[in-house]
Structure formats: structure tokens, C-alpha cells
Simulated scan of single mutants.
Amino acid sequence: MPRDERERLIPTGTCWCGCGREVGLGKFFASGHDKTAEAAYMAVHHEASVARLLADTGYGPGSTETIRNAALNRGGWELCPRDCGYAGAPASITNHIRKHHQKEA
């Protein structure tokens, strides 16, 4: 299902990692618990391995599309405008430019 057609997620006031902790207004997770939930999901579904995740979802070796290209085409990622090959989310691009290209300006 395309990203814009999925149902909107609504915070419930309880941490979504399963710990039962109450969380603030508009939050899905207690601090750091998003990573706990991510690690638990990876353990359950992909042997706690990013390589297994990529292979299981069709982005492993020999696939027709890399996960990097999928992120660039459909995931909101961008290439660094300085043509260095770096790719990432817009905020990551900003940080990358500040750290690695500040002397070029």
C-alpha cells in the first residue's frame, strides 16, 4: 500500500514497545524505546540481522533494486547536492554538508 494511503497512526498514551509505560501527548514511545521495539521486531522477524531483513524483503544481493535506491525513489531520501555520493534523509544531508563540506563554501 502506498505510504499516503495507510491509516494515520495515533499515539495512545502508552509506549508502543510493550513496556506499558505512560508517554507524553503525541508520543508513541518512551525515550529510547523506539530502538527497543525495533530490536525486538528484528529479533522476531529477521534473526536480529539487517542483512537478513534486506534478503527477506528483496533487497539482498542480486535484487533488481537496492535499498538505497528505494529510499531515494520512494523513501524521501535525497542525494547530497555537492555530488559526493552521500544519500540520506533531508536532516542527514544538512548535517553531512555541515560536517564534510563546510570548507568548500
Rank of each mutant, 00 (worst) to 15 (best):
P2T: 04
R8T: 05
L9Y: 01
I10F: 12
T14N: 08
T14W: 08
W16V: 01
C17L: 08
G18E: 10
C19Y: 07
R21N: 10
G24P: 06
G24W: 09
L25V: 01
K27I: 01
F29E: 14
S31F: 00
S31M: 02
H33A: 05
A37C: 02
E38I: 05
A39E: 09
A40C: 05
A40H: 12
A43W: 01
V44C: 04
E47F: 04
E47H: 14
A48F: 05
S49E: 14
S49M: 10
V50N: 07
V50E: 11
L53E: 15
A55W: 06
P61H: 13
G62N: 09
T64G: 15
E65Q: 14
T66C: 14
A71G: 15
L72K: 12
N73P: 03
R74E: 12
G75Y: 00
G76P: 02
G76N: 02
W77A: 12
W77S: 06
L79I: 00
D83H: 09
G85A: 00
G85C: 02
A89V: 00
A89D: 08
A91R: 10
A91P: 07
A91L: 02
I93E: 12
I93A: 13
T94E: 10
I97H: 05
I97D: 11
K99S: 04
H100N: 10
H101C: 06
H101S: 08
H101I: 07
E104F: 04
A105S: 09
A105N: 14
